[in-house]
Design a protein around this nucleic acid. Structure first.
Lengths: 213, 213
DNA sequence: TAGATTGTTAATCGATTAACAATC
DNA sequence: TAGATTGTTAATCGATTAACAATC
């Protein structure tokens, strides 16, 4: 299911693929066998031609006159996105946000597994584990990483610790980083970093609210 | 500082404006007086012409041969985005994520104030308040909203409660909704809803990781 | 004035969508 | 075959960027 030719695939297409997947999960729960591009489009708030175009980047998944088989398309999109296997997450910073992510059920529904948590607070280290996930001191990162290859690091530390943690992640060569600390980290190009800045999202929301009035 | 003519402003422009603002905050901390479009661009990872174009949608803020006065541009962008005043937030669901948001310091740095939290758990209600923020039963929403106009509702409940809470928000006519529950809510068009789906963000990260290999 | 940087135009690039032949 | 829906093309729409006159 690799890309056809060597077209560059727009990032928006990838984001929409995630949305289609979410919609297919529901369709499976409702035990629908087949879904059309127009139904999929309506549910995701996009154009039907766009659904077909997005999929066409990766191959032919539908049947003319019929639509898409829900189970097949579900599996195909998972494969396209690379989430047809388990991805191992490590969490840095077991505060409120970190704990929320540890217990985040949607991760488990997909193949995302938090396999280790890191913190420097002796009280938390004393607990040994939380929700079945072991808590380590960051000094032990290399050891943990060697035993059980970490795919993605989640940074949920205070701002003051975020770059320190990032440097350790770089050192361990964990290539995927999901950063929740409201600061732009200094991380080399070859790493893939996604920032989640709540304040920016609010800014965006506020702007749209102002436009309405 | 309203839009010039009646050009439609791209949503990406608004998102970038937030990024420029973040950069200006830093420039202010470093007590820089003036910043050029190319510096701003480099710091935010965009093109200098784009910075100027984005700003040009809203007016002329720079001085040829000089650049932009940091303090002025900071104030101007805040005004453009509508965050030159306090925005009152109410939080629904005081679990780990909700608590994290309650204590989120970046909100305070901007003019975002969480003024009330809502939960149905008697234990939490018994606490009366958390971090200085009063906790109410959702039944009291109307009363609280009447006393102290709520601008934005944050949904950080379990999935099972999200739509129930959304319906109350609709009823109270709170027009801005920031939803963290991993479910697409049924909310009328006139409300402004932003979803934060952690799993979708991870999906995106994973796709990019796969591309590298 | 000389140097620097903006604001803006025009050219380029890329993404969306309507339309329809292919085909189940 | 008739009806439906895909895959794909071509047209449209929109966003990015290079380039440069305006001007501090």
């Amino acid at each position: 299911m690799e890309r056809r030719k060597n077209l560059k695939i727009p990032e928006v297409t990838i984001r929409r693929l995630s949305a289609y997947l979410r919609c297919l999960v529901r369709a499976r729960e409702e035990e629908r066998n087949v879904i059309s591009s127009s139904t999929l489009a309506k549910n995701c708030g996009v154009n039907a031609a766009q659904v077909r175009k997005d999929l066409a980047y990766f191959g032919k998944f539908g049947i003319r006159g019929v639509g898409y088989y829900v189970d097949d398309l579900y599996a195909d999109i998972k494969k396209i996105l690379g989430i047809d296997r388990v991805w191992k997450l490590a969490l840095f910073g077991v505060g409120n946000l970190g704990t929320a992510l540890l217990f985040y059920k949607d991760f488990l529904k997909q193949n995302y597994r938090v396999i280790a948590a890191f913190d420097i607070d002796p009280e938390k280290l004393g607990m040994g584990s939380i929700g079945g996930i072991p808590i380590f001191h960051p000094d032990e990162l290399m050891k943990v990483h060697q035993e059980e290859r970490i795919d993605i690091a989640i940074i949920s530390t205070p701002v003051s610790q975020a770059q320190v943690v990032a440097d350790r992640i770089i050192q361990a060569n964990i290539r995927g980083v999901l950063n929740f600390a409201p600061i732009r980290l200094d991380i080399p190009e070859k790493f893939v970093v996604k920032n989640v800045f709540f304040t920016n999202i609010l800014d965006n929301l506020v702007y749209l609210l102002c436009q309405q009035l």
